[in-house]
Amino acid sequence: MAVQGAIVPARPLAAARPFNPARIRHPRIREFHTLWDDLRGDRIAPARDDFGPEDFRAVLPHLFLVDVERGAAFRFVFRIVGTELERQLGRSLAQQEIDPLPQDRWAGTLYGAYANCAITLRPVYDYVRTRLPDGTVGEFERLTLPVSADGQAATHLIGCAILSGGFSIRDAWGRAG
């Protein structure tokens, strides 16, 4: 069965209910959300310059920073990708553009989450738990947060993704390579 659905959300969610950070399981991801929330203050999102290098230290192996370019469709280009994420994928992602075509399902989930975040300017949280045939349980968490200079449009997306348990990104998302 081929996946047919659109990967970009059909409607903006700006007026939607606020994101509930209690959904976040992993303490490092929760701390990163708290940092982002503190940096933004009363704004809808912090600006890129609000972040200092020390802010990334705790999540650096799991961190991603993405440039957002608006056109007929969003373009997302990785600027920073944590070493653990690249190790899991087995390839470098820095300077790579995310292919929105859904036949690459790993990229499809990424593009959908990033587009959702860029459109709504709200946190997007993904959580998947898989029980493998041998009984091992693997978990994947990803938090994507908007970064905006003017509160109107996302200039970047920042976040972190953490896997735990007995599977890899490649196992979880198919042969992304």
Binding site: R105, G108, V128, W173
Partner: peptide
């Protein structure tokens, strides 16, 4: 149809490739 996406149906189908499906997602 809102579940006919890479994030939902795609993950279901990838889990099926790994073996017997047992996934939880939000």
């Amino acid at each position: 149809p809102c579940m006919d996406t890479p994030a939902f149906r795609g993950r279901l189908e990838e889990a099926a490739i790994l073996g017997r499906v047992d996934i939880y997602l939000e």
